[in-house]
C-alpha cells in the first residue's frame, strides 16, 4: 500500500486515529479523551509523506501514554505510513473538559461514572463531588478514595445498590 501526502487530509488522519483506544479504559478512543491536539502532514524531500500527531499527556505519570503513542504508530503504519512522529505538548494542560459527550456516554455504559462538572470550576479543599451511581443512578453515593486503579479515576460506593464504582475525575 502506498500513500502520498497529496491525497491525505487531516480529517482522514483523524478518522484513522479514532481506532486508537486508551489501554486502561478501552471504550474510550483518544479522540473521546481529547488528547489529540493537532495533526500535521508534510512531505519529505524525496516525496515521502510524514505525519506528526501532537498529543497532550493526561496525567504526568500516566503509563498509558507510551501505549497510546505506540497505538498511534501502529494505526498509521497500518495505513502505509513510514514517517510518523508523535509529539507531546504540555500546554494548555489536558482537562476532562475536552472529553467528548459521546465519550462520557460510553464511560457510563461501561460502568464508570463520567466527569460531572467543568474542571475549570475547582472544588474547595475539602469539598466533594456528588457523583451519581452509573448502575442505579442514585445520588446517595460516597467517596472511598480520590485515588483509583488509574490516575484518572476515584473510588466511590453507592449507598443505594451497595455497588462500588469508579468515577472519572473532573480534572
Amino acid at each position: 500500500m502506498s500513500t502520498t501526502a497529496r491525497n491525505i487530509s487531516k480529517e482522514q488522519v483523524y478518522e484513522w486515529l479514532s481506532s486508537v483506544t486508551d489501554p486502561e479504559v478501552p471504550v474510550l478512543t483518544i479522540q473521546d479523551l481529547g488528547i489529540v491536539r493537532d495533526v500535521l502532514i508534510d512531505t519529505t524531500d524525496n516525496g515521502v509523506p510524514e505525519v506528526t500527531v501532537v498529543i497532550t499527556p493526561t496525567y504526568s505519570g500516566c503509563p498509558a501514554m507510551d501505549a497510546i503513542a505506540m497505538g498511534i504508530r501502529m494505526a498509521l503504519i497500518g495505513k502505509g505510513f513510514r514517517n510518523i512522529k508523535v509529539e507531546h505538548r504540555l500546554s494548555p494542560a489536558w482537562t476532562t473538559d475536552w472529553m467528548s459527550e459521546e465519550g462520557k456516554r460510553k464511560l457510563e455504559q461501561y460502568g464508570i461514572a463520567p466527569p460531572i462538572r467543568k474542571a475549570v470550576n475547582p472544588l474547595g479543599l475539602f469539598e466533594e463531588d456528588n457523583v451519581p451511581c452509573p448502575r442505579c443512578h442514585s445520588t446517595d453515593t460516597m467517596l472511598v478514595s480520590q485515588f483509583g486503579p488509574t490516575s484518572c479515576k476515584a473510588l466511590y460506593k453507592c449507598q443505594s445498590c451497595h455497588e462500588p464504582f469508579e468515577h472519572f475525575k473532573c480534572h
Binding site: S60, G61, F147, G148, S151
Partner: peptide, 13 residues
C-alpha cells in the same frame, strides 16, 4: 493505591 498514585505523579513530573 492512593499513596502509590501520588508516587506515580511525582515520577511523571
Amino acid at each position: 493505591i492512593a499513596i502509590t498514585n501520588t508516587a506515580l505523579d511525582h515520577l511523571g513530573q
